[in-house]
Design a protein around this nucleic acid. Structure first.
Lengths: 199, 199
DNA sequence: GTCTATATACTGATAGAC
DNA sequence: GTCTATCAGTATATAGAC
């Protein structure tokens, strides 16, 4: 049991799970599912390929684990309770600041792209996540509308589609040219004309 | 020489190049560079893998050929001379109507995503294309601004970043749910508040 | 220009020792 | 829980006949 529990914070060693998730993130994010190799991930996690498959019995299951690990982190980053209305939308547009930020963004971009194929191993997951995000943003707009922060002629579903698309596209631009992109600012500027606040 | 020239329109047979480009489009668009196999592409084009490599000496060169073939078609679709100002932007937001439309969109999405990695075989091409599109849209906004169609407080570089990102993101949404997406309409709605036209 | 055959390398996954 | 060894499959690319 001792090996399963999380180590004291500040300790040098990471749990096996942490090591594997980080290695999986690094490899899947830069090569996608198709381009990634279990041997590469295993080596980065400090164990053999067979050792890796002991923890996650297939490449697909490993990717699923990395994705749900990512989802957990993303949820936790939003805070508890998560923000509401326009606050949530601005929060989603903030780039994470950790050193692994780029990897998380890249993982999202590449898995989303690969996941558009119906025969992708985690196609269903990608589809559902896309719908879930869209729905979450739509609800946020509806809360904002109920609070009178949104101009009454704005359709919440449309606004959600536009903002989510914008974030996805700006993420890509940020990956290509981190210095030339301004994710948070551009989202804010796109949003502005829809708001009731005078500015 | 006879085999090189394009066949009479309406003829059943396609040139080898056409066959290979179409097969490459189909496979690369659904699996990306990493997930595609030359054998698969060759089989769809109706020849052996070695036969395919006679025309394009490596997988990378084949992808390059498919991408520049795609670029040619995209350019030609814009018309000659290409539209200007806001017309160009609205034109870019129109989905192509051919049966292979989905494949072209998917190729763009997956190659862009894979291409964010610095060690991707055609990373340089993807990067340059991204910059080229952004620049083209920025110029279009500047022409529109010069024609007085744009509100004077709109920054053209910002508008270009936002519109390009929006198109990329809406493309992705269209791939996931073709019925629920409205690429052309959403671009128009996002653009509207920036225009001088009263509506 | 197209083929078969092959070289060489790597893939995901399994078996079994420790 | 981790390893070595291995299997069967597939990959890209090349050689050489036709």
């Amino acid at each position: 049991m001792r090996t399963r529990g999380p180590r004291r914070p500040g300790t040098q060693t990471l749990s096996r799970r942490q090591q594997i998730m980080r290695a999986g993130l690094a490899v899947f994010s830069s090569a996608g599912f198709h381009g990634a190799s279990l041997r590469d991930i295993a080596a980065r996690a400090g164990l053999s390929q067979a050792g890796l498959l002991h923890h996650y019995p297939s490449k697909e299951r490993l990717l699923r684990a990395v994705l749900s690990w990512r989802d957990d982190k993303a949820c936790r980053r939003l805070g508890d309770p998560p923000p509401d209305g326009l606050d949530l939308i601005h929060r989603l547009a903030e780039r994470p600041t950790a050193a692994s930020a780029r990897e998380f963004v890249q993982l999202d971009v590449i898995v989303s792209a690969e996941g558009t194929s119906a025969d992708y191993p985690v196609h269903g997951y990608v589809l559902e996540r896309h719908a879930r995000v869209l729905e979450m943003v739509r609800r946020s707009f509806e809360r904002a509308a109920a609070a009178g922060e949104l101009r009454p002629d704005i359709d919440c579903a449309t606004a959600a589609r536009i903002v989510v698309a914008l974030m996805d596209g700006l993420q890509l631009q940020w990956l290509f040219r981190p210095d030339a992109a301004d994710v948070e600012g551009d989202v804010r500027r796109c949003l502005q004309p829809w708001l009731t606040t005078g500015l």
